[in-house]
């Protein structure tokens, strides 16, 4: 039982975007976040090209005579996606460079540990006492110092 083409392709493109977004939110490792960003980008590009598709049409390239009644697909979204893909790889390379820099500086790519380090650094720079929970009685540290829970998270 064949499923209609439009449902299939839209489901594929939306699925790609959804998987990318879930991956980005659920992954702790920053490199995995970058990979998932690439997935979401591919899904977005696919959606754009889908918006220019026409039934029973040919690619927008003139090769001899076009049969009567046959049209061409929309070239404008294709041109936009063309540039978007190349920009994507440039941004990806920049993100990889930033990851290398982060790992050199902090020794980890775990999002949670990095966030804790960032808060700690900010507090220290501003001269504020480290953030502690106010629900517990004074003098009792509710959780160990952030530096203690820094470890290599699996990718």
């Amino acid at each position: 039982m064949p499923i209609p083409l439009d449902t299939l392709f839209f489901a594929g493109a939306l699925g790609l975007v959804a998987i990318g977004v879930v991956g980005m939110l659920a992954s702790r490792h920053l490199f995995r976040v970058l990979l998932c960003l690439g997935l979401a980008e591919a899904g977005g590009n696919l959606l754009l090209v889908l918006s220019g598709y026409r039934w029973d049409s040919v690619a927008p390239i003139l090769t001899g005579d076009l049969p009567v009644g046959v049209s061409m697909v929309d070239p404008v979204p294709q041109a936009l996606v063309l540039t978007s893909i190349v920009i994507g790889v440039g941004m990806e390379a920049l993100a990889v460079a930033l990851l290398i820099r982060i790992r050199r500086a902090y020794g980890t790519l775990d999002g949670h540990a990095l966030l804790a380090r960032l808060r700690e650094d900010l507090d220290e720079r501003l001269g504020v006492a480290p953030d502690r929970s106010e629900d517990l009685p004074k003098g009792h540290a509710p959780f160990p110092a952030p530096a203690a829970k820094e470890q290599e998270v699996n990718p």
Binding site: V49, M72, L82, I85, V86
Partner: peptide, 17 residues
């Protein structure tokens, strides 16, 4: 992309992606 009649985009995606 080839199925969607976008050969230009398909070439870019294959080479880049």
């Amino acid at each position: 992309f080839v199925v969607l009649r976008a050969p230009d985009v398909a070439m870019t995606e294959a080479a880049v992606g």
